[in-house]
C-alpha cells in the first residue's frame, strides 16, 4: 500500500482507507441499532390489537327509573385487561331525562376518582373528597373537577337499558 517515494499519496490513501473502515463501523452499527430499535419502539408505543370488544351489559327495565331521580345501579361486566378477562363489579348513576332519554354516568369523580353520590336535598352530585359539585346533567358547578362526569354508551333494546363503554368527554367530542 505504501508506495515508495510517494509519501503524501500514501498518507492520503491510508487516510481514505481509515475513513472507509470508520464509515463501515458506523454504518453497520447504525443499521443494527435501527433494526432493533424501531421494532422495539413499535412494540412499546403502538396500541396492541384489541382481542375482544367489551359487550353491552343489560341493566334492567327502563321504566323502573324515574325522571329526575338519579339511581345508582350495580352490575358485573367482563373487562379485557391485556391477556386477562376480569369479571368485575361496576356501578353507574342512571338519570332519566325529562325527554325520556337516559344518561348513565361513570361512578367516579373526574377530579381524582373518588366515588360521588347524589344529594337529594341539594339536587346535585357531590364528591366527598374535594367537594366537587355536578349538575344532574353531569356538568361541573364548582370544585376542582376538570370536566363533566364520564358517561357510559347507552342504548335501549325491548324496553331494557343497556350500557356500553365508559367514555370521557373528549372521546365523545371526537
Amino acid at each position: 500500500m505504501e508506495e515508495l517515494g510517494c509519501a503524501p499519496q500514501a498518507a492520503r490513501s491510508r487516510r481514505s482507507r481509515r475513513g472507509f473502515f470508520q464509515a463501515g463501523i458506523l454504518g453497520l452499527g447504525a443499521a443494527i441499532a435501527a433494526a432493533l430499535g424501531l421494532p422495539a419502539l413499535a412494540y412499546l408505543l403502538t396500541p396492541p390489537k384489541s382481542g375482544q370488544q367489551d359487550a353491552w351489559i343489560e341493566i334492567g327495565e327502563l321504566n323502573k327509573f324515574a325522571a329526575g331521580a338519579p339511581l345508582e345501579v350495580a352490575f358485573r361486566r367482563n373487562r379485557t385487561d391485556a391477556w386477562k378477562v376480569v369479571s368485575e363489579k361496576d356501578t353507574a348513576w342512571v338519570v332519566k331525562r325529562a325527554d325520556g332519554g337516559v344518561t348513565a354516568f361513570g361512578p367516579q369523580c373526574t377530579h381524582l376518582g373518588c366515588a360521588y353520590h347524589w344529594d337529594d336535598g341539594r339536587q346535585q352530585f357531590l364528591c366527598p373528597c374535594h367537594s366537587s359539585l355536578f349538575r344532574i346533567d353531569g356538568s361541573v358547578i364548582s370544585g376542582p373537577a376538570p370536566r363533566p362526569l364520564d358517561r357510559y354508551e347507552t342504548k335501549v333494546e325491548n324496553g331494557k337499558l343497556m350500557l356500553g363503554r365508559l367514555e370521557t368527554l373528549s372521546e365523545r367530542r371526537a
Binding site: P39, Y43, P48, A82, W83
Partner: peptide, 30 residues
C-alpha cells in the same frame, strides 16, 4: 422487552406470551 409484557407465573406466563405473539405489535419478532 419481553418482560415488559410477560407475567412470570405458570398459566399467566402462557397467556401473556400468547398476548405478546398475537396482539402486541412486533411481539412475534421480538
Amino acid at each position: 422487552l419481553l418482560a415488559f409484557n410477560y407475567a412470570p407465573t405458570p398459566g399467566e406466563a402462557y397467556n401473556s406470551l400468547r398476548y405478546i405473539l398475537t396482539e402486541v405489535t412486533g411481539g412475534r419478532l421480538i
